[in-house]
């Protein structure tokens, strides 16, 4: 395969033709921040936090969608780039609740990390802020759209599973938000609570309800585990705190890995030290159900009882 050599921050790096500047930088060990970039579903180019300076190019191109070319010179932390990133962060903060102290994602939030990196303490801009009601309309996922930075990764990962696409961008401009059809709470939609969207959300807009208040992100030791309920082989993490398994979270939403609710609940039952009772939607309302019901095992268990009992 043909390759190209470029210079990033004075460092020469050779990559296969077609590689993005972002990936080339990663190969050279140079970090470029990203929000909307998803290696599984690339080329969205919306958040613009990954802009870099390339002499000869108009403006500051987004490194996630710019192809590395022979002889290209890239600066990833030039004054113009730093100004742009800081300003974008300030713009995001201007419309973001500053409740990091109680946020479930504290310590595991890209917005927080990048503000730290660029010394952005807050936003100098005053004005309109969203005040969407908190969506905790279902037992599994809490959506706080005030924290959403509209990177769209949840939308794209949801659409990757055939027949899902439960959420999409809705409305326009400053009023853009991620919404299920008719902008209902998630609990009233066809969402199956697989948690793919939670696995990719870079901020605190999507969090696990069943993990709420149980620990800080840095207290958890994440132990990977493969679900064996079906042959998809989905990856989950066991979240271990003080030696106890507190909850199960979806790990990586790869293609062909649907990450279903049933799998996650099954793993919770199997591994959690103190599993919470599952809930399912019956006649439009969420009700507590037996584990057998939640895992679809009632029929099997009945049959087993009959066969083994007599």
């Amino acid at each position: 395969m043909a390759s190209v050599t470029l210079t990033i921050n004075g460092k020469k790096v050779t990559v296969p033709r077609g590689t993005t500047v972002l990936d080339a930088a990663a190969q050279a060990g140079i970090f470029i921040p990203t929000f909307c970039h998803d290696p599984e579903i690339p080329r969205f180019g919306a958040c613009r936090i990954c802009v870099v300076e390339i002499p000869g190019m108009r403006n500051l191109p987004a490194s996630c969608v710019t192809e590395a070319t022979e002889g290209m010179v890239v600066e990833t932390e030039s004054p113009a780039v730093v100004e742009a990133r800081s300003t974008i962060l300030e713009l995001l903060l201007a419309n973001h609740p500053m409740d990091c102290l109680t946020c479930e994602k504290n310590g595991d939030c890209r917005l927080q990390d990048y503000c730290f990196r660029y010394g952005v303490k807050g936003s100098g801009f005053e004005g309109r802020q969203h005040s969407y009601p908190l969506d905790d309309s279902n037992p599994y996922i809490v959506r706080d759209l005030n924290k959403c930075i509209l990177c769209g990764r949840c939308v794209r990962t949801c659409a990757q599973v055939e027949g899902r696409a439960v959420i999409d961008f809705a409305y326009r401009g400053f009023d853009t938000k991620i919404a299920p059809p008719m902008d209902t709470p998630l609990g009233e939609s066809d969402c199956v609570y697989c948690g793919r969207c939670l696995a990719v959300c870079p901020v605190g807009a999507l969090t696990y309800k069943r993990m709420a208040g149980k620990g800080r992100s840095w207290e958890y030791d994440k132990k990977p585990v493969t679900c064996t309920f079906c042959d998809s082989g989905c990856q989950f993490n066991l979240n271990v705190k003080d030696g106890k398994i507190v909850g199960v979270t979806a790990a990586s939403p790869g293609p062909g890995r649907p990450l279903c609710l049933k799998g996650r609940l099954g793993l919770e039952l199997l591994y959690c030290d103190d599993p919470q009772a599952p809930e399912l939607k019956k006649d439009g309302e969420f009700v507590k159900v037996s584990w057998a019901d939640a895992l679809g095992l009632e029929g099997v268990l009945d049959k087993m009882k009959k066969l083994e009992g007599k």
């Binding site: 180019g45 300003t87 713009l91 995001l92 309109r128 509209l150 401009g173 400053f174 009023d175």
Partner: peptide
């Protein structure tokens, strides 16, 4: 431009709002 911004990219969606304010 603020009311016609599509809302996809951060600088235009948030930036036009703040400039207008």
């Amino acid at each position: 431009t603020q009311s016609e911004s599509c809302g996809k990219c951060t600088p235009c969606r948030e930036g036009t709002t703040r400039m207008l304010e």
